[in-house]
Design a protein around this nucleic acid. Sequence first.
DNA 1: TTAGTTAATCGTAATATTGCAATGTATAAA
DNA 2: TTTATACATTGCAATATTACGATTAACTAA
Lengths: 108, 108
Amino acid sequence: MGATKTEIFTAQQNRIALVAKALGHPARIAILEFLIKLESCFCGDLVKDIGLAQPTISQHLKELKKVGLIKGTIEGTNVCYCIHEENWKEISELLSVFLNKKSKGTCC
Amino acid sequence: MGATKTEIFTAQQNRIALVAKALGHPARIAILEFLIKLESCFCGDLVKDIGLAQPTISQHLKELKKVGLIKGTIEGTNVCYCIHEENWKEISELLSVFLNKKSKGTCC
DNA sequence: TTAGTTAATCGTAATATTGCAATGTATAAA
DNA sequence: TTTATACATTGCAATATTACGATTAACTAA
């Protein structure tokens, strides 16, 4: 097959997995860190900073936008990418809740 | 290509991405939630609970073990899988630090 | 208009992931 | 020993991801 069987999982499980998947590539982590530091929000600067080809960065930006972690605003010929603050907070919360679920103890 | 260019990223970025990637599948989220609730830690019970074939579950368990989120102990014919408490704490911390990095403000 | 700049999209190759049937391995029970 | 049970491994098909060259679209400046 190769396709994930999303139907058999809960909406929450699918959502967490989707977000985690978006964070599951070092280039996307690097992009987010760059945008957090706010060194620049232009795609061109990201291409220079990260060292992947422009279409590749563009693709990663698209992924991040799809799950809502960032937003992009057209500014003349440039596109300004920024962290989507509200969504980031919500996603951060979603993952934190999952990560802080306490195990009832170990059996091994 | 199709292979991630890990060389151009920092060890931290790669580590975060690897962990996130392991969390990037609903079956693996479901497995972890099951183990956290500790309804059972046997592979066979996971197969029944989740609804994927036994080899598929086994593969997901292997992934989770590889990044250190769980550990498995052989107990007779069964294998007992558990959350790896120390690693879980460390990973949780790693992601939390990343998620709580505050943006210096938005420009768009 | 023309030329230059920025970034998205298309097309494609290389590689990775997901899922499962079949099979293998190890322990336990008869 | 034989049989059953639990799980790992292998091998394979379907699909997804990663990366980039070439091209396109949209705006700006001359």
